[in-house]
């Protein structure tokens, strides 16, 4: 058993799941926003990092890590809600390129705003758990209490989201509002509120992803950029509207990156997403988890 845990393959699997879990989390955010408002949120990563900055920057001023985490997520919820109300709502019913352009602009704005507000520093965000990897007979198991915390947090959030959508009235309303807004409105569902809620949820989770990624590292406005690109592909592979697809896509890309990193070259790891995308397009171009609609004419 212990030799299995320290084997090269298992090392890659652990490494892949760690990075894949965060990719999956961001992909999930994209899917929630897409499902609820049909907007591709290019600022997803930057919004998450902005919220992360608001909360986690206080760590450097001797604030408790967990308090900072809660503050980050709360900021994420607010930023998401405001974004939907102020930037996105006026664009409903307009050409679909409009929200994309607005969100790309918002991305640039946020990434410029962060270094303007907070001085750059190479202080690393202290981890609440030990980052020392477990050892087995002198060999390293690529898991540490900190890595387990990252994975558990990411998977926990995904589980909560799944339960929310599947088993609560609120989740049912959100699904209904996204699927058939007019009918839902007729049935008394306050659709606009639920759209805002979708954005809040997505941005709050984005903030959590920002915290997970930045713990143990330097805080940087672009920390989620590379992950966003992978997450975008993961969401697309899943068909953009399947939360499960996004999660599986994210984990797949994380694993692919890790194996390329180890067996090929670190410089080629970012290609993993492209490879996964190519394969999925070749097998099922409409997204692996999308139901194919076939029509006869």
């Amino acid at each position: 058993m212990s030799t299995l845990l320290t084997s090269r393959i298992m090392t890659d699997v652990f490494g892949g799941i760690t990075s894949g879990a965060v990719i999956a989390l961001v992909a999930l955010c994209l899917v929630i926003v897409w499902k609820s408002t049909n907007v591709l949120n290019f600022a997803q990563g930057a919004m998450g990092m902005f919220a992360t900055f608001v909360g986690m920057n206080l760590v450097f001023h001797d604030t408790n890590y967990w308090l900072c985490l809660v503050l980050s997520v709360a900021t994420g919820l607010v930023v998401g809600g405001l974004t939907e109300r102020v930037l996105i709502r006026p664009l409903y019913g307009k050409p679909e390129i409009n929200p994309i352009v607005v969100m790309v602009g918002f991305l640039g704005l946020l990434e410029a705003l962060v270094p303007a507000i907070w001085a750059s520093s190479f202080n690393t965000v202290p981890s609440p758990f030990s980052q020392v990897y477990f050892q087995s007979h002198g060999n390293t198991v690529l898991l540490s209490p900190f890595v387990l915390y990252q994975i558990a947090l990411a998977l926990g959030v995904m589980l909560v989201v799944a339960l929310l959508f599947q088993y609560t009235t609120l989740g049912l309303k959100m699904r209904a509002a996204a699927l058939a807004p007019e009918v839902s409105r007729l049935l008394g569902v306050r659709v606009n509120r639920l759209l805002t809620l979708g954005w809040m949820l997505s941005s709050g989770i984005g903030a959590l992803a920002g915290v997970i990624v930045s713990t143990g590292h330097t805080l940087d406005a672009t920390n989620l950029d590379g992950i966003f690109v992978s997450a975008f592909i993961a969401a697309a592979v899943g068909g953009l509207e399947s939360p499960l697809g996004a999660v599986i896509g994210g984990l797949l890309i994380g694993l692919a990156q890790q194996f390329i990193l180890n067996y090929w070259s670190a410089n080629l790891a970012p290609l993993a997403g492209v490879i996964v995308l190519l394969i999925s397009l070749a097998i099922k171009p409409q997204g692996i988890f999308t139901r194919t609609v076939t029509r006869r004419v």
Binding site: A236, P285, Q286, R295, R296
Partner: peptide, 20 residues
């Protein structure tokens, strides 16, 4: 004749291409 409805994702890819 058979058409496969590819869903939103491929349309979005086109949109992204244009933006890029």
């Amino acid at each position: 004749m058979q058409y496969i409805y590819q869903g939103e994702s491929s349309m979005n890819h086109q949109r992204i291409h244009r933006a890029v």
